[in-house]
Nucleic acid binder design. Structure first.
Length: 353
DNA sequence: TCTGGGGTCCTAGGACCC
DNA sequence: TCTGGGGTCCTAGGACCC
């Protein structure tokens, strides 16, 4: 009776871990930080802060979530579900400032730091005790900003990211191949990072309801249904496999855009044309400030009630010149033949690579 | 309950070329 | 006339995430 080699059971001396740090109810927490009298009250941040207008919830505090208010919910609905909530406008500059302090704190650790957004980052760390590192991260962020966060620990970014959701709020959770199926095997596929409602529905139609089902599926069969890259990737996702590196290099944006939902639909297409020109000049200003020439300009039109169309124009040569970008946006707009009432307009500049 | 704004990446289909 | 197969690029749109 030889049994298994013991080496396979033993952890290497120095192990690589991925930690995912996610601030708890970040936007609402920043608002409470500068208005302490709001602590403990339902706070809803979104749009212009007026729950009678068009807009959706960006973040709700846990007190508001208890009333069924969550991100993406129309503000009007949020007001109906939680009339006593405090409604605040989105103040991107304030969140960016706090975010910078959070990320600077994380860069103080001996780790590669990949920033994901205002309130999230991955850290690649070495060591045998990632929980201790996680608790130090939580303590230092609290000391530096007064904010709470949750830390997920995994062998890769996928595991760490999902671990965070299991540790929230204000916790630390470790998710590896050892407990992956125990924790996630019976959950619906949209529990995974990258599978949303649409893909989950298509998977159910193929007889795949849970993470466990998907992990056992045939990658070739899914390639037929979901495409040659996406199909096999879905199976790897369900198995908790992910080899993407934690990338500390600063992100170089591929595009920059501006879009606006109008409080009242635009019915006169002279207004539409003027608004597209405005958006194009704003985008051009940002492209020029970042010294990024645009190679293509795409205009988005959302007709009332909600049908969305895009049309683009490739520039003869990449440019950050406002007049050229505005011209291209108006040329793209001219390709829209339907002159129905418009709910939203957007202009996006795609940068030369 | 009428559905934001900022992005990224992938796919399908047509054009074009050999 | 009736005409294969493959590669690559471009465009529009879908899906997803924060």
């Amino acid at each position: 009776m030889g049994g298994r080699p013991r080496r396979a059971e033993r952890e290497p001396v120095m192990t690589r871990w991925v930690l995912h740090v996610d601030l708890d109810q970040f936007i609402a927490a920043v608002e409470v930080l500068r208005r302490p009298e709001l602590r403990g009250r339902p706070v809803v941040v979104g749009g212009d802060g007026d729950p009678t207008e068009r807009g959706v919830v960006a973040t709700a505090s846990y007190e508001a979530r208890a009333h069924g208010v969550h991100s993406g919910l129309p503000l009007r609905t949020a007001a109906r579900r939680c009339p006593e909530a405090v409604f605040l406008p989105v103040d991107a500059d304030a969140y960016r400032a706090v975010s910078s302090r959070v990320m600077a704190t994380l860069r103080g650790f001996d780790a590669v730091v990949e920033v994901l957004g205002w309130d999230e980052a991955f850290l690649a760390v070495a060591g045998d005790d990632p929980e201790t590192t996680a608790r130090r991260i939580r303590a230092r962020i609290r000391a530096a900003t007064g904010l709470e966060c949750t830390v997920g620990i995994g062998r890769n970014k996928l595991q760490a990211k999902l671990a965070t959701g299991l540790g929230k709020p204000t916790g630390v959770f470790r998710l590896t191949h050892r407990n992956w199926f125990e924790v996630l095997g019976g959950r619906p596929t949209d529990a995974l990072w990258g599978i949303g409602a649409k893909t989950a529905r298509r998977l159910r139609a193929a007889g795949i309801a849970t993470v466990g089902d998907l992990a056992a599926a045939d990658p070739r069969a899914l390639a037929e249904r979901f495409g040659p890259a996406t199909g096999p990737w879905l199976v790897r996702l369900a198995q908790g496999r992910d080899h993407s590196p934690v990338d500390g290099a600063p992100r170089v944006p591929r595009s920059r855009g501006r879009e606006t939902t109008y409080q009242r639909d635009l019915r006169d297409w002279r207004d539409v044309r003027r608004e597209v020109a405005n958006l194009a000049r704003q985008v051009a200003g940002e492209a020029a400030a970042e010294r990024r020439p645009a190679a293509r300009v795409v205009v988005k039109v959302r007709y009332a009630p909600f049908a969305t169309r895009t049309r683009g124009r490739t520039l003869e040569a990449p440019t950050a010149e406002a007049a050229r970008i505005e011209e291209a946006a108006l040329a793209a707009l001219d390709r829209f033949t339907e002159r129905r009432p418009v709910r939203l307009l957007g202009v996006r500049a795609e940068f030369a690579r």
